[in-house]
């Protein structure tokens, strides 16, 4: 795809940790007595972007736009339909299962539901230490010390090792999830809506913890969220997703000051302003209709069916990925 070339011109940029190249994740739909494949849900449909070392890339979008799927496909928790994901120069989409397991320690994930993501029959200690055994990193007393250290690092009392996940509160469980993810000293962590299931008061604590750990350990985050204000707070750059595709990718400052894509504008207009006077006068862009079925996306621009400024060509040709300068990229015929 020619339109992606401009992004991939710096092939061996040492600053880039993760390079996602034209990633597709389609889920087949089977129907009928013989379960023939009759189509596919195009959850992720051609993602291309880089994540630089030490940065936090926010991935935002409505529910069902494919954010989480993208996160899982990048870590190859799903086998992507096509495309490449290079982490530290290795294409993990191509690796065999065994090779993949070897580099798993480099990349970890923090899940949305801290309750469901922890095996209910394992103690906190074994949840955190299991990968240490599996990858043969440390053992014996050292392992114990490491677990204590990890729990301490995420702000949990190390004496909790023998407790079960259900004995903790939501915020504590998420800390366990983070400790677990940190156990193997990863470089790259996908945070899949890590705070969505938590109380607002706890959300800030967890986000602060993530930021602290990032600065201490030099982590790189892909922060998936539908909460724009939280993304504004934590992310360096933001990618906006709609129906399996990225609409706009730019720095946080650009995004909030000069959004270019009509979808981004609509999203931003939905963020409430914490000043009642401004809030009352603010003009909101209301999008008509529902998100189209990802099994049968619209022809042309996927956003065309709801776009307030769409023109004829939007319904016919898919927009190309355009560099608007100032590190701002957009997929729209009209933006600029």
């Amino acid at each position: 795809m020619a339109d992606t070339a401009q992004m991939n011109d710096q092939k061996s940029d040492p600053n880039v940790l993760v390079r996602v190249d034209n990633l597709h994740m389609h889920f087949p739909i089977y129907k009928g007595i013989f379960r023939r494949q009759v189509g596919a849900v195009k959850a992720v449909d051609g993602l291309t972007f880089d994540i630089r070392r030490g940065e936090t890339l926010g991935l935002v979008g409505e529910s069902g736009c494919g954010k989480s799927t993208a996160g899982r496909a990048i870590l190859r928790l799903y086998d992507p339909t096509s495309g490449h994901v290079h982490i530290n120069g290795k294409d993990i989409a191509e690796l065999s299962r065994t090779e993949l397991r070897k580099i798993r320690p480099q990349m970890q994930m923090i899940f949305q539901d801290p309750q469901a993501s922890l095996n209910p029959r394992m103690t906190v200690g074994s949840i955190v230490s299991e990968p240490l055994d599996e990858h043969g990193i440390v053992s014996g007393k050292e392992k114990k010390a490491r677990v204590g250290e990890l729990l301490d690092a995420v702000g949990l009392n190390p004496s909790f090792v023998n407790r079960y996940p259900h004995e903790f509160s939501g915020g504590q469980r998420q800390r366990i999830g983070i400790a677990r993810a940190l156990a193997l000293n990863p470089e790259f962590i996908v945070c899949d809506e890590p705070i969505a299931a938590l109380d607002v008061s706890i959300q800030a604590q967890v986000v602060n913890l993530l930021e602290d750990l990032q600065s201490k350990l030099g982590l790189t985050y892909l922060f998936i969220s539908h909460d724009l204000s939280m993304v504004r707070h934590i992310a360096d750059r933001v990618a906006v997703m709609y129906l399996g595709k990225i609409m706009e990718l730019t720095s946080v400052e650009n995004l909030f000051k000069t959004p270019k894509h009509p979808y981004t504008k609509a999203l931003l207009s939905a963020v409430p302003v914490p000043d009642p006077k401004i809030e009352a006068k603010r003009e909101r862009i209301i999008l008509e209709g529902d998100v189209p079925n990802p099994a049968n996306p619209p022809k042309g621009c996927v956003f065309s069916t709801r776009c307030p400024i769409a023109e004829t060509k939007c319904f016919e040709d898919a927009p190309k990925w355009r560099d608007l300068g100032k590190d701002q990229y957009v997929a729209c015929h009209l933006a600029g």
Partner: peptide, 28 residues
């Protein structure tokens, strides 16, 4: 369940994922 995904993300082998994580919980 998410915890199965967690186990895979940890890099556990499929055997361990299936027989230790999933089977044990399913047996209850």
């Amino acid at each position: 369940q998410d915890y199965v995904r967690t186990a895979r993300a940890k890099g556990m082998s499929e055997k361990v994922v299936l027989l230790v994580h999933v089977l044990r919980n399913s047996l209850i």
